[in-house]
Design a protein around this nucleic acid. Structure first.
Length: 287
DNA sequence: CCGTTAACCTGAGAGC
DNA sequence: TGCTCTCAGGTTAACG
């Protein structure tokens, strides 16, 4: 599911409800996520107050009063839901698709607070929870990530240096979290379309003006996506069930057959596959 | 070192 | 109605 903007929206909504709250209990109903959930997760965080909620690229991080951390990744279909106390066993009416009842069997982790609970639901189980004893261990886990959009480190000079030997195509390169962290398939498609760059173009062959455009429009699109509550394709929602709106302004993703939205471009958006990921591009201005 | 591919999962929708 | 097939906001081990 979520790329940087969606995780940011979850972070913002979670912060409003659980910052400075104390965890009463964590229930793990199914440990078999992308990585097996640490069986001690309950002991580690019981009775601890949350002192900070933040995000690093696509990771959500919860910090506790003893300076330990809980890292959450949502994979493709993970969501958090705030529910009233003691209704964890009922369907939460926030489903994977549409608004049918969400199958209770995908409620894998339940974090209980005094007045409500937060449920982690993930039908495909590509997400994961990892506890960290301290900041050193957490930073070690995150150190492989490249800079995020909207930070000073993500700039033209950095990108030029990073791409100068990249023989792969620009689309896969931008999806590589070691180069830039936080982008996923939707936003890379959107960025390359507005920059008028062929997704299959070899990364190191891009002109300087193209790299400058990538930096500029990556920041613009990510900022706009956050301001629009993220993108809801199938099941993304914040913890209160609110969907995003950015999908309404997609220019490439899911737009095959539609006219290219670039100014004065007469082209049409086509769909193909690059490394098994759907890729949307204009056959006129992106070639 | 590099880039590509397959694998991990479930569910919705299309086609027959 | 029901079966089979494809595809989905991600990551990464294994391979050439």
């Amino acid at each position: 599911m979520p790329e940087l903007p969606e995780v940011e929206i979850v972070k913002q909504s979670l912060e409003k409800s659980v910052l400075f709250q104390t965890i009463q209990e964590i229930q793990v109903r199914n440990r078999n996520l992308r990585f097996k959930v640490d069986i001690n997760i309950k002991k580690k965080f019981n009775g601890l107050k949350i002192t900070k909620i933040f995000r690093v690229s696509k990771y959500l991080l919860i910090k506790f009063q003893n300076n330990s951390f809980l890292l959450v990744h949502f994979g493709m279909s993970g969501t958090l839901h705030q529910v009233k106390k003691n209704i964890e066993k009922k369907n939460t009416n926030l489903s994977f698709y549409n608004n049918r009842d969400l199958p209770i069997r995908h409620n894998h982790i339940i974090i209980k607070f005094k007045k409500f609970s937060i449920i982690y639901n993930d039908p495909r189980r590509f997400g994961f929870f990892i506890p960290f004893e301290d900041e050193v261990n957490l930073k070690s886990f995150l150190k492989k990530l490249g800079p995020e959009p909207l930070t000073k480190k993500f700039n033209f000079v950095y990108l030029k240096k990073k791409l100068e030997n990249k023989t792969g195509n620009i689309k896969n390169t931008l999806l590589d979290q070691k180069i830039v962290s936080g982008l996923g398939n939707i936003y890379v498609n959107e960025i390359l379309n507005i920059c008028k760059i062929d997704p299959l173009k070899t990364a190191k062959l891009l002109k300087e003006k193209d790299l400058k455009k990538i930096v500029k429009f990556t920041n613009i699109i990510i900022k706009k996506a956050i301001n629009n509550g993220g993108s809801t394709i199938k099941n993304f929602k914040n913890i209160l069930g609110k969907e995003g709106n950015f999908q309404d302004t997609f220019r490439a993703y899911n737009n095959d057959g539609n006219k290219c939205k670039n100014l004065n471009c007469k082209g049409v958006i086509k769909k193909n596959f690059i490394s098994n990921r759907s890729t949307y591009f204009c056959t006129y201005c992106q070639m």
